[in-house]
Design a binder for these strands. Structure first.
Lengths: 229, 229
DNA sequence: GCAAAAGTGTTGCTGTTACACCCATGA
DNA sequence: TCATGGGTGTAACAGCAACACTTTTGC
């Protein structure tokens, strides 16, 4: 910290931004929130929501603001976490911009509202396939890749899958979330054994009826971690 | 990214810095490189080397520059990795400074040279106990805590312990590095079994003689990972 | 009674822990 | 020969992967 003049902070010509990879489940698929750019560079391409950090603003506040302003919807993430900072010199043709990338998880149902929105500089917003997205602007594909990797990590260490679901849910539903995030099928018996032995789920007594045999409903147990490293 | 005017990058009044937690082994102990501040705030307190990022400079280049300029020594890290970005509004009394924290590993022997140095604004630099450091300036204790946690993680996922040692080393020496990083004793037999079964070590044929029974020397195998998430 | 989805156990493998004695060398 | 540190094996346990059939409901 000693290269800093003791007086005031010099305005370095390095712009600081946040980008947000916000995930939710829709149609049994993992979706990511993307905005379609309305201006150059990369006009009409899809991009992660992002924007410059303001001076009095915490990083996570900037992430929330950006999420809301670019989608015109009051999104309430269940989880928000910084996961990497992207600062390669050539990553943005407009100048030197370093971006702190965030991972957000939005609960079930969120996906309904954000079909069409119009921030100032976007053509719209949408929830698109996270594993097979369209071509993305800037280095946003790298950011998304890394966000997915972190999300997959968090399945093991925290129980982040729970945050994608409503308060009560069935085990097959939870398994579906894991499968969507990992992008592969899991064994039903092993999954149940593992999850139930962790003791983070409590049966609600109710059952969900519908097609086929009714399923036990569970909810998150009182003692559930959420953060790690 | 859409809150950015398409023209040029506005100079946000947010300063971007890097801080570096550089580790090395000395006297069988894990040490971290600290500089003693020569000016306010926190004059005479110890701090991690750090400084503002310049506009054309990659983040890791800034980390290397800061490491060198504040210690007046040509340090050649074996590993350098960004691990978290610290941006809390009140973390620096001089203004809004967001800092991308880096973890560096320096090889055995490095510790000899950096006893006394004099960058412009420091009283000196030194390698101090990483697990029991003196009081640190700003939020540098939080940064160090997180750096240690990441370093411990990297013992499992990469084989970062190897980077602390010279090209050839004995198994007890390697175990010593693990113990110093984890700050606890390990079982000799289990450690050997685990490391040898990983196949990342190849015996060099030579033995190290000295006190007691001579020890087999090993070197890093050709196929060794170094990075993960 | 049939379609659809929920639920259930066992076996083998692999990795981890705990634990105590003998071996090779230099002084 | 003794002090010093290097090197070795086994048994219990936990966690994980593979694998197929029965149960409950709605129609």
């Amino acid at each position: 910290m000693t290269l800093l003049p003791a007086s005031a902070v010099p305005a370095t010509p390095v712009g600081l931004a946040v980008d947000v990879a916000a995930f939710a489940m829709h149609d049994g698929e993992l979706r990511v929130l993307l905005v379609q750019r309305g201006e150059l560079p990369h006009a009409r391409d899809w991009a992660l929501p992002g924007g410059l950090v303001m001076s009095g603003e915490e990083l996570h506040e900037a992430a929330l603001r950006v999420l809301r302003s670019e989608t015109a919807v009051e999104l309430e993430p269940r989880h928000l976490e910084q996961f990497h900072t992207f600062g390669e010199v050539g990553r943005d043709p407009r100048g030197r911009i370093v971006s702190v990338a965030h991972l957000a998880v939005l609960p079930h149902g969120t996906v309904e509202v954000a079909g069409e929105a119009s921030g100032g500089h976007t053509l719209g917003a949408g929830w698109l396939s996270a594993h097979r997205p369209p071509a993305l602007a800037f280095d946003h594909q790298s950011i998304l890749d890394r966000a997915l990797a972190r999300l997959q990590l968090r399945l093991e260490y925290a129980n982040l899958a729970l945050e994608f679901l409503p308060e009560t849910f069935t085990l097959p539903e939870l398994q579906g979330v894991h499968e969507a995030i990992l992008d592969r099928k899991l064994d039903k018996r092993n999954f149940r054994k593992r999850l139930l032995s962790q003791g983070v789920l409590t049966p609600s007594g109710e059952r969900r009826t519908g097609v086929g045999r009714p399923a036990q409903l569970y909810r998150k147990a009182k003692n559930a971690r959420s953060a790690a490293l």
